[in-house]
């Protein structure tokens, strides 16, 4: 018999290393004569879109099409430390570093531009990689300006470090002033169907509202919600590396199961954008938070469907049938 249920979970996640750990990111932005804007960062793109996010931030600050931006420096000998791509920190940390470096470069564009046009900053306008002294009058491209600056023995280049302070919590009490730079929140509602013959669960719908501060790239944020949730459903329903007496008995993808494309629910999601965090353009990190709600939302939906509470993960068909029998 199939029984429907609905469950909910609200979660929070303090992102960045926090706890007083020296967490920072260094980035460099440079306008080069060959019509490129080089953003130098050692940050790793694991697929979530780090390189794209940095590109968008630099393009936004420098008011130029993203196609001119090139991320370089994925090499210990070519870029300084950007910190890890973990702790949901890159958009916030490297994003801020790139934003600051780009702003520094923008400052230089105005500075050298005002020397070139022999005018003051307020009279200058920047648009699409060009600097204007006034409407309909003389303009100069970034690349031309880079050349002029080079002749002065200088560069249109800046490095910035984003290094916010957190404080180590007391180890006995855990108390501290600022433990994490910010928190991301999310609420999910999940509809499921439990087959009481087999104990198998099918997840039908997932409704998500994610507090993102501001989405730098909404499509990629939705990608995080979907990817994180499905990974979380794996944890909730099937994933289990079984280690017996120190030996893993399912060290392959035949017996360690993760969700397939046929196991996924329908998604409906909303991004809550209050533009109110300390991240670039008010954004905050979303990578990890998106996995956190799935297992409790599913477990709560199971309770709603069949009135049994499973307190260990994964919620396997065996556990469902056993719990149903105990309930009888």
């Amino acid at each position: 018999m199939k029984k429907q249920g609905r469950g909910m979970a609200s979660i929070m996640f303090g992102f960045g290393y926090g706890e007083g750990f020296p967490d920072h990111s260094i980035a460099e932005v440079e306008i080069t004569k060959d019509k490129r804007i080089k953003v130098r960062t050692a940050g790793a793109d694991l697929g979530q879109g780090f390189l794209t996010t940095m590109t968008q931030i630099a393009a936004e600050v420098l008011k130029i099409d993203p196609s001119y931006i090139e991320i370089v420096g994925q090499d210990t000998h070519k870029a300084k430390n950007s910190g890890s791509t973990s702790a949901t920190r890159q958009t916030f940390f490297s994003g801020n570093a790139v934003r600051e470096a780009a702003e520094e470069v923008m400052g230089k564009i105005y500075h050298y531009g005002s020397l070139y046009f022999n005018s003051n900053h307020p009279e200058l306008t920047v648009k699409d990689g060009e600097l204007y002294a006034c409407d309909e009058c003389e303009k100069i491209t970034y690349w031309e300006l880079a050349e002029i600056v080079e002749q002065r023995g200088k560069e249109l280049k800046a490095e910035a470090t984003f290094f916010p302070k957190t404080y180590a919590p007391d180890r006995k009490t855990g108390q501290g002033e600022k433990i994490y730079v910010a928190y991301t929140f999310m609420t999910q509602v999940m509809d499921i169907e439990v087959d009481t013959d087999t104990g198998l669960i099918e997840v039908m719908n997932v409704y998500t509202a994610l507090d993102v501060g501001r989405a730098i790239n909404p499509q990629n944020v939705h990608g995080q919600i979907e990817g994180g949730t499905v990974q979380g459903l794996g944890m909730a329903m099937m994933e289990d590396q079984v280690i017996e007496e120190g030996i893993t008995i399912n060290a392959d993808m035949t017996n360690y199961l993760v969700p397939s494309i046929q196991d996924i629910p329908n998604f409906e999601s909303t991004l809550i954008e209050n533009n109110d965090s300390g991240g670039p353009f008010g954004s905050k990190g979303v990578g990890e938070p998106t996995i956190i709600g799935a297992s409790p939302a599913l477990s709560n939906a199971v309770y709603d469907a069949i009135g049994v509470r499973i307190k260990s993960l994964p919620i396997t068909p065996e556990k469902i049938l056993n719990a149903l029998e105990e309930k009888k």
Binding site: Q48, G223, I225, E226, G227, G228, M253, V258, I261
Partner: peptide, 20 residues
């Protein structure tokens, strides 16, 4: 049909929605 056709391909990142 799409899900059945792609059922032999595991993706760990996307949750498959955008692939469909």
């Amino acid at each position: 049909d799409i899900k059945r056709g792609l059922s032999g391909n595991i993706c760990r990142c996307t949750g498959y929605v955008k692939i469909v």
